[in-house]
């Protein structure tokens, strides 16, 4: 198998994993919240860990959802200038944006790694005997994946620009 094939397989696997995880987490959220209401209404009791767990599920869903939004290029943005820019400039703008985004996402990943390291050293509040740093692993994981998707977008931008300029050259050298 070529490098490209391996890379494509890894990406497909990542997509399936994240999508599957999101479905699972969402179903868990609905079931757990409804179960808690049921227990409270009919047995006037509840699960001690359900509400804190629900809050982490919300966080995990949101962060993984943001990974999907990066993959699908569906992040909320103001693109007044991007909208008005001439067609030839647009790929360049795209490249600059993706470069900038990967940089910020990489720094965020680094900040998240520091945060989790501090949680390992000083953290507390275990939930269901799982220490807090594990619940917070979602931050470096999600920002890491977001960084990778922005880097992939850079690669795609460069390929697009290269194909454009080669087409431009062909057009220029033609009779």
């Amino acid at each position: 198998m070529s490098h490209r094939q391996v890379a494509r397989q890894i990406l497909t696997f990542e997509k399936r994993l994240i999508d599957g995880l999101l479905c699972l987490l969402l179903v868990a959220m609905i079931v757990l919240a409804c179960l808690q209401i049921g227990l409270r209404t009919f047995f006037s009791s509840g699960l001690l860990w359900a509400d804190p767990l629900l809050r982490y599920l919300v966080l995990w869903c949101g962060m993984l959802g943001a990974v999907v939004a990066t993959r699908e290029k569906k992040h909320i943005a103001i693109d007044v200038v991007g909208y008005l820019a001439p067609e030839q400039v647009k790929p360049w703008i795209g490249l600059v944006i993706d470069l900038f985004s990967s940089l910020v996402a990489a720094v965020l990943t680094w900040a998240a790694v520091i945060f989790v390291r501090n949680e390992v050293l000083f953290g507390s509040y275990p939930l269901l005997t799982v220490p807090s740093w594990i619940w917070n692993l979602i931050f470096p994981t999600a920002f890491g994946l977001i960084t990778i998707h922005f880097l992939l977008a850079i690669a795609a931008d460069i390929r697009l620009l290269a194909s454009q300029s080669s087409r431009g050259n062909e057009a220029g050298s033609g009779p």
């Binding site: 943001a66 990066t70 992040h75 909320i76 943005a77 103001i78 693109d79 007044v80 200038v81 991007g82 909208y83 820019a85 703008i93 600059v96 944006i97 900038f100 985004s101 910020v104 996402a105 720094v107 965020l108 680094w110 900040a111 998240a112 520091i114 945060f115 501090n118």
Partner: peptide, 28 residues
């Protein structure tokens, strides 16, 4: 970069990271 259409969360996070590091507070 924000006006060019960068994802808004990247822009805001970028500003936050720059701001905190400018006053020497750990970016975490």
């Amino acid at each position: 970069l924000a006006l060019l259409g960068s994802p808004l969360f990247i822009v805001i996070a970028g500003v936050a990271l720059l701001s905190f590091s400018s006053v020497d507070i750990d970016i975490s």
